[in-house]
Amino acid sequence: MNWVWQQAQEYLASDLEDRFKTLVELAAMANPGVAQQELSEYMQGRSTHHGAPGLKVSAAVPNLYPGPDMSATPREPFGRYTAPQMKARIEKILEAAMKCYRELADLLAIRFGRTLALRGMMPVTFYGVVFHDPDRDRGAFDWSHGEPGLDWLLKPANVHSTHGNSERHNTVDLTLNDQHCSDEIHDERDVLYEAFRSYVDSDPSYEPFARTFSTTSGRINALQARPATRLAMSWLAEDLVQLGFLPDNFRIVSW
């Protein structure tokens, strides 16, 4: 019987791989939430700046995230961000991304419940450091396009809280250009790992579905369209890959 289930799961994963982005788009169009708000802002921007036909928004959509507060340059024609403004933008994006993840999980994978690794660990704190200097000298082969760098990890918000308590909120805890915080994330992984394992081990029902502890250095595409939806999609996809409902090599491709 196990091989029958395994084969069926492989077929389901293959089908979902082809339809995952479409399902998110349909959910965004049909249900109020972060994904819909970002889609509306994107459609308004396309219609306003590019004259895209057929994209109609009934009312002006306010900017969801803080915009540039420095003048544009030939290399950054849409404006630049001071370090504090970039940090504020990323904080708002991350808050929206965690909310969007919850919304997409409830819309598309509600029956999975806390077997979704991130959903099961929530509430979490997105803990990290933003590195951004708008005036730094970038070489000819720097393709960051003004995107900030980040070091981060997702931490259980409270090891001693009631597991799965939806009344508690996800939070964002970022510092700016803070090398000490970066060193903590990279050099004190054992301490951070012990805190993570304390949470997982205190809930045996969640332990089989827990995600692997990790710290990350990279970017979150904070200047691209629909950044929170992209990030939420990637987190949900990671959870579904772990459960075997998306292929191991599944990747969120650029829109």
Score class of each variant (00 low, 15 high):
Gly33Pro: 07
Phe196Cys: 07
Ala105Asp: 05
Ser58Glu: 14
Tyr127Gln: 02
Tyr206Asp: 03
Gly51Ser: 04
Ala8Phe: 08
Asp15Met: 09
Leu108Asp: 01
Asn2Asp: 15
Val129Ile: 10
Arg111Ile: 02
Leu23Tyr: 11
Lys21Phe: 14
Leu236His: 12
Pro134Ile: 06
Leu64His: 04
Gly113Trp: 11
Asp239Leu: 07
Leu223Tyr: 03
Asn177Lys: 09
Ala105Gly: 14
Arg89Met: 12
Phe250Cys: 09
Thr212Leu: 10
Phe213Cys: 13
Ser234Met: 08
Ala228Arg: 01
Val191Ile: 13
Gly45Val: 01
Ala52Arg: 13
Met233Ile: 13
Pro247Ile: 03
Asn177Tyr: 11
Glu17His: 05
Arg168Ser: 04
Asn249Asp: 15
Leu107Gly: 08
Ser14Cys: 09
Pro32Tyr: 10
Phe213Asn: 11
Gln85Trp: 03
Ala117Cys: 06
Arg111Asp: 11
Ala105Met: 07
Thr22Arg: 11
Ala225Cys: 09
Pro123Arg: 08
Arg189Ala: 06
Met121Tyr: 04
Arg111His: 12
Phe126Val: 01
Cys181Asp: 01
Met122Cys: 15
Ala117Glu: 03
Asp187Ser: 13
Glu91Pro: 03
Ser217Asn: 04
Glu194Ile: 00
Ser58Ala: 15
Phe245Ser: 07
Phe209Ser: 09
Ser198Phe: 00
Tyr193Ser: 12
Val61Trp: 00
Pro247Trp: 01
Ser161Tyr: 06
Ala109Asp: 05
Asp106Ala: 15
Ser14Arg: 13
Glu17Leu: 11
Ala232Tyr: 02
Pro227Ile: 02
Leu39Glu: 09
His132Gly: 12
Pro77Met: 08
Gly149Cys: 03
Phe20Val: 05
Pro148Gln: 12
Asn158Ala: 11
Ser161Asn: 12
Ser47Ile: 02
Tyr206Val: 00
